[in-house]
Design a protein around this nucleic acid. Structure first.
Lengths: 145, 145
DNA sequence: AGGTAGATTAGAATTATTCTAAGGTATTGA
DNA sequence: TCAATACCTTAGAATAATTCTAATCTACCT
C-alpha cells in the first residue's frame, strides 16, 4: 500500500468528497457513486428511479431505498433541490440556484429555464405570519400538433 | 306528482344541472352532490380525500373511487383545474381561470393569489416544436418563526 | 486495530391513485 | 310511460412511488 487514503475515497475526486462532507455526510461508496453521476457534468434532473438505473448500469450495486435516502440527504445538505411538477414523480435538480423550469408534458422531462431574466411582478405580500420561502415557476409545454 | 322533473335532479339548482350537462356528463346523484359542495360557495381547493370526507359528512354515501372519477371528469369538462404542489396529493381548484397560488407548506393548504396583477417577464420562447400550455406560479410560504 | 455512531439494505408497509368487473341508473325512442 | 341501452358507480384488488424497519455493515475517531 502506497497511500494512506481511506479505501472508500480511493480514486475519487477530493472535490466530491469535500462536497459530501460539507453537507454533513460521510463519503460512503454509494454516496460517492451517486455524487459522481450527479455532479460530474453540468446541471441534471433525475428521479430516484432514473438515477438508480444509471448507477446500476455503471456497475454500482445499491438499493433504490438508498438512492431515495441519498437524494433526500443531499437535498437536506443543499446539494440538490427538489422539484415537483407532475404528482407522479419527484425530480431532483443539481442546480440549486434560483431558477425556473420548462416541463415537457409528453416526455415527462424537466429543463432549466436558461438565464435569470425571468421576473415576476405584482405578487401580493405574504399573508401575515408567513414568509415566502420560494417562488416557483413552471412553464408547461406540449408538443405542437 | 306535480312535477315532471327527473328524480335525481329534484331539489337541485338548474344551474348545477346545466353545468354538469355542459361538461358532457349526466347529472347523477353523486355528481350533483359533489357539484353542490364544490360550486355552491366561492373558489375552493379540494383533494379527493377531503371532498370525500365532506360529502360523507353531508350524508352522501359514495366511494372514494367515484370522487376521483368525478373530479377528473369535471376537470376534463373544464369545471375544475388540477394543481400540483407537493407530490403527495393532487388538488382541484374550482377557479379555472388564469391565476396562481400560495402554498402553505405547514398546513398543506392552497390559496389563490388574489387579483390578476401577477406578471411574468423575461420568459424565453418555447423550444422548437413545442408550445406553452400554461405558466404556473406557486409561492411557497412557511410560517414565520 | 476496535468501538461506535451513522449508513445501507431487503423487504414489508404505507399512501395516493387507478383499474376491473359486476350491478345500478339516467336517457331515449317507441 | 316503459323498456333497452349506454353510461355510472362501486368494492375491492392492483399499481406505483415512496418510506419505514430492523438487522447488518462500515467509516472514522482514538
Amino acid at each position: 500500500m502506497r497511500s494512506t487514503a481511506s479505501k472508500s475515497a480511493a480514486g475519487h475526486k477530493p472535490d466530491l468528497i469535500a462536497k459530501i462532507r460539507a453537507a454533513g455526510l460521510r463519503p460512503t461508496r454509494q454516496r460517492l457513486a451517486l455524487g459522481k453521476l450527479l455532479f460530474a457534468s453540468g446541471d441534471r434532473h433525475v428521479t430516484a428511479e432514473s438515477l438508480h438505473l444509471e448507477a446500476t448500469k455503471a456497475g454500482t450495486q445499491l438499493s433504490l431505498a438508498t438512492v431515495y435516502n441519498t437524494l433526500h440527504q443531499f437535498t437536506g445538505g443543499g446539494l440538490l433541490r427538489q422539484v415537483i411538477v407532475d404528482g407522479e414523480k419527484t425530480y431532483f435538480d443539481t442546480n440549486t440556484g434560483d431558477h425556473h423550469h420548462f416541463y415537457f408534458e409528453d416526455r415527462a422531462l424537466l429543463m432549466d429555464i436558461p438565464g435569470d431574466d425571468v421576473q415576476i411582478d405584482g405578487l401580493p405580500k405574504a399573508p401575515p405570519g408567513t414568509e415566502i420561502e420560494r417562488v416557483e415557476v413552471v412553464v408547461r409545454l406540449k408538443s405542437r400538433a
